[in-house]
Design a protein around this nucleic acid. Structure first.
Lengths: 220, 220
DNA sequence: AATCTATTCAATTATTTTGTTGAATAGTTG
DNA sequence: CAACTATTCAACAAAATAATTGAATAGATT
């Protein structure tokens, strides 16, 4: 019993995984990388942090095997190692969103602030789309859409929405989604669409949530 | 943009959850509590740490809403708040066991050390039990068995096994389980049984793993 | 081969975390 | 209601973490 037991060593190693996600910025990095692979420079902009610090956080994530890297020309591109990382982050959010009162309050404030009166989930979308014809739009950057999107979704990045309004029918319900519950893009899209008298609602879930849900269903 | 955005605040709050499980001892505490509710004193013994430190760790887990407490007579009994905590820990292990080479090595050493030549999973058990009659025994402390166990399992705590050998048939396969992959109890039981010429194998999954698997199936 | 540039490393400082010991607290039981 | 005891708090020292700046590195391009 002089040496640490194997059990303790395993817990020690496991805590490297949890330590890696125990920092807000690193969690945000994983969230961004869940949408699409990115370079250090792009990630640094996305999480509003110096390149050196971003790189340092990426090292931590890499050593915990949560992300991989790969050179592409001048850039080094980081990516999520596999879907078990998505499931881990999903489990954290599932717990946090439901149980931490402070988070519930923040999300409520967020919705009030963005004037999000109505929003639906993936399940709601499925049910509604059986009753009526729904136009589903993906307002994330086109690159993220290309990397993967919900079937039948139309790619209309937020910054192009104003110009491309004519592609959308006034008489049908439009559902917009982006990166997920914490992302503002879909909310901004809804605001614009509502001003232009479209019938538009936000979906909180994004592509990653859809992907995880689909996997779960196909497993049984 | 002077104040931190809501998104940042949410990540900050979420990181309290991940921070709570980012410590080996706290992770072990959750694992123990996953089996059954326990008092501070009992937990302190179980994780081999001073009562004051154990209590301190329990505070952290409580403030992240991972555990609850409740007084029972002279004792304060801690418990897992709900199954989303089990799912979170499961996700961490799923990732760690599969991806961290160091953990794989430790588990391999553990099996070699304990001379675990053969071990099966829950899925294997299901398949095998359709072909032949299998005796499933739960070698955890009786209290944990009472708090919940796999259906049709017989409770034979490890320390009673020697005395109660006569309850087990020599001609059938015996499968023993305990708290899960990191627990030594089932391995010790197998060793004893094999010495006594029983045909016995270890199941790596425990009650918690069974519970999660059942939920997943019933969801779809 | 030399230059260019994205990325990583190194050193530093302020802050946070961990585990101990011993004292304080609060709730129960006789 | 007094004594008891499990639990928590407080204070401390050692260790680890986070973010910055500026220098070094390692590929790619010309």
């Amino acid at each position: 019993m002089a040496t640490t037991s194997i059990k303790e060593q395993v817990y020690q190693e496991l805590s490297r995984v949890t330590h890696a996600i125990s920092n807000p910025k690193r969690m945000e990095l994983i969230d961004v990388l869940s949408q699409k692979d990115y370079s250090v420079e792009e990630l640094s902009k996305e999480i509003a942090m110096s390149i050196a610090s971003t790189s340092q956080h990426l090292q931590v994530l890499k050593s915990a095997k949560l992300i991989d890297k790969q050179r592409q020309g001048n850039f080094i591109i980081y990516s999520i190692t596999d879907d078990s990382v998505l499931r881990l982050v999903f489990a954290v959010k599932e717990l946090g969103f439901r149980k931490i009162a402070e988070i519930e309050r923040l999300i409520r404030d967020f919705k009030t602030d963005k004037n999000i009166l109505e929003s639906i989930t993936l399940d709601d979308l499925l049910i509604r789309s059986k009753k009526e014809k729904i136009i589903l739009i993906d307002v994330r950057p086109e690159e993220e859409y290309k990397a993967g999107h919900i079937p039948n979704a139309l790619s209309i990045p937020l910054e192009q929405l104003q110009k491309r309004l004519n592609e959308l029918p006034q008489n049908k319900t439009i559902v917009a989604y982006c990166r997920g519950p914490l992302c503002v893009m879909a909310a901004d899209a809804i605001k614009l669409l509502n001003e232009k008298k479209y019938k538009a609602i936000r979906m909180e879930d994004g592509y990653v949530e859809w992907k995880l849900k689909r996997q779960e269903k196909s497993k049984n």
